[in-house]
């Protein structure tokens, strides 16, 4: 038998009170209830404690909050041809525009797996060179080639100790590539944060999905080595069928 609960204020109303999002009448009624109810005062303080924790410890890392950009939004006009062209021609031009390395790329580490970055800033789009300096706010997209392996996990580690999963974005395991064997642009882009120093991106290709947890220890070890180790070490000791890495530097804001 479910006992009838005495009247209390909901958590949503407590949050609304804290955000000053209640009408004057509701605010006064809620405050009066809090004055008389120890249970709800305790709950309100618990919520306030969590909000303070966010502000003190979680929000400072908000500068690292990646931004997912829709590939079909206006930002991608710089990537797609003019709208006047037919869709078939658009598709052809997009495929042609994706660069195919004429020879073994310098950043390929095993059997020719490849990872290339393209950056966009203002009106400019360019192919990033290994070791090149990029700025906070630059948008970066990835082109990969995985030798026919169907799954890829794109992760990164930077000199500030941040480990990120770029594809699948924020995901816990590898994503399936829509096609394999040709250079392929990963859906979506990443906006760089303002943590200065090196950032190394790894594309890990495999026949079956790799979990992030299986590669996280190697990434954290690399991160713990500091900026020089991140610059020097281009391979992760993880069970990937093939991998490629790419290093760039992030400048001060």
């Amino acid at each position: 038998m479910m006992n009838a609960a005495p009247s209390h204020v909901s958590s949503l109303k407590l949050d609304a009170l804290a955000m000053d999002a209640l009408s004057p009448q509701e605010r006064d009624a809620t405050q009066s209830h809090l004055d008389a109810c120890l249970t709800c005062r305790t709950r309100a303080e618990e919520l306030a404690s969590h909000r303070r924790h966010f502000t003190a410890y979680v929000l400072p890392r908000a500068d690292r909050l990646p931004t997912r950009v829709s590939p079909w939004g206006p930002r991608w006009r710089w990537w797609a041809p003019a709208l006047a062209l037919s869709s078939a021609v658009v598709l052809l031009l997009v495929l042609v525009a994706v660069p195919r390395p004429p020879e073994e790329p310098q950043y390929a580490l095993k059997g020719g797996a490849a990872l290339q970055l393209f950056a966009h800033r203002g009106e400019r789009t360019w192919k990033v060179e290994e070791g090149e300096a990029l700025a906070p706010g630059d948008q970066v997209r990835f082109v990969v080639e995985g030798l026919g392996l169907p799954y890829v996990l794109v992760v990164s580690v930077d000199g500030a100790g941040q480990v990120s999963t770029y594809f699948p974005f924020g995901g816990t395991e590898s994503g399936l590539l829509p096609s394999h064997g040709l250079p392929l642009e990963i859906p979506g882009s990443v906006v760089l944060d303002n943590a200065p120093g090196p950032e190394r991106v790894f594309a890990l290709f495999s026949r079956k999905p790799l979990s992030f947890e299986s590669v996280a220890p190697a990434l954290r070890e690399l991160s713990a080595g500091g900026a020089d180790v991140i610059r020097d070490r281009a391979r992760l000791p993880v069970p990937a069928g093939a991998q490629a890495s790419f290093l760039f530097e992030k400048t001060q804001p």
Partner: peptide
């Protein structure tokens, strides 16, 4: 910044 505190508190609870 505006909604993160309430969102985090919700998740934390």
């Amino acid at each position: 910044r505006t909604y993160g505190p309430a969102l985090y508190a919700r998740c934390r609870q």
